[in-house]
Amino acid sequence: MGSRGRTGFRGDRATIGATYFDSRLTNEIFTTYPAPDFVATPGNRNTRSTQHGVEVFATAQPIPQLRFDLAYTYLKAREDGGVEIRRPNHIGSINMTAFSRDQRASATLTVRYNGRQQDDAYTDPSYVPVRVSLQEYVLVNLNAAYKLTPRLSVFGRVENLFDERYEEVFSYVGQGRGAYAGVKAAF
């Protein structure tokens, strides 16, 4: 169940919006490790999982050459009354895009925040999980594009610009800095 609202102002050069959500999940798929082989096996939970919160966003383009996009989510996720794993309470992002006067070139700087979250660590030989806390992190990405013709453009991007060390899952280090470039053609 959810409710959504959106409002534009300043001649539609800016938009704000919000969505409230309240979900109850049943038969969630999860991984179990049954004895004696302890091989990963999918199963369905019979627990009660609830997730509710709010998502808000704002977009502004004060001049044709500059656009800002902001988004934030507050999430409260519980499973049988306890904190649900891998569900941070706070997630946010900011994008700033600059365009050339002729709109052929653009560059976007993205800053993404992921709040602290819980996870299960299978560090005990009995395969009984231990609850651990994963640190919050901020990732910065940069991308640029240039239209050579209406049907041909080149692009490049750098993800995790500052080589932030982070975990989305316990003991799995997130992707380090990566650079990509390419050509895009429309037929």
Rank of each mutant, 00 (worst) to 15 (best):
E55Q: 11
I91E: 08
T149D: 08
E28G: 11
N160S: 07
P36N: 11
D22Y: 02
R10D: 15
P64Y: 10
H90Y: 09
E167S: 03
E159W: 09
G115A: 04
E84M: 07
E168C: 14
A60E: 14
N27D: 15
I85G: 06
Y74D: 07
Y33F: 15
R104K: 13
V138N: 12
R87M: 02
Y146W: 12
F155H: 10
P36L: 15
R151Q: 09
G82C: 00
E55V: 05
Y166W: 06
P129D: 08
F38H: 07
G92L: 03
A71F: 10
V83N: 00
Y180M: 02
F57K: 06
L148F: 14
V128W: 04
Y72C: 01
R101D: 13
G92Y: 06
T32L: 11
Q118G: 02
A121F: 09
R67T: 04
G82S: 08
K76L: 06
I94D: 03
A179H: 06
K147R: 15
T19Q: 14
Y113Q: 13
F57P: 03
T32G: 06
Y74K: 11
P62D: 13
T50G: 05
R177S: 05
G11K: 07
T73Y: 05
D120M: 00
E79W: 00
N46E: 08
R151M: 03
F187G: 03
Y127D: 12
S49N: 06
S93K: 02
I16P: 05
S3G: 11
F9Y: 10
A60N: 14
V158Y: 06
R4S: 13
R157V: 11
G92T: 07
S133E: 07
S23N: 14
F187Y: 13
R116T: 13
T26S: 06
G2F: 12
A179G: 03
R24T: 15
P34N: 10
N89P: 01
R87F: 01
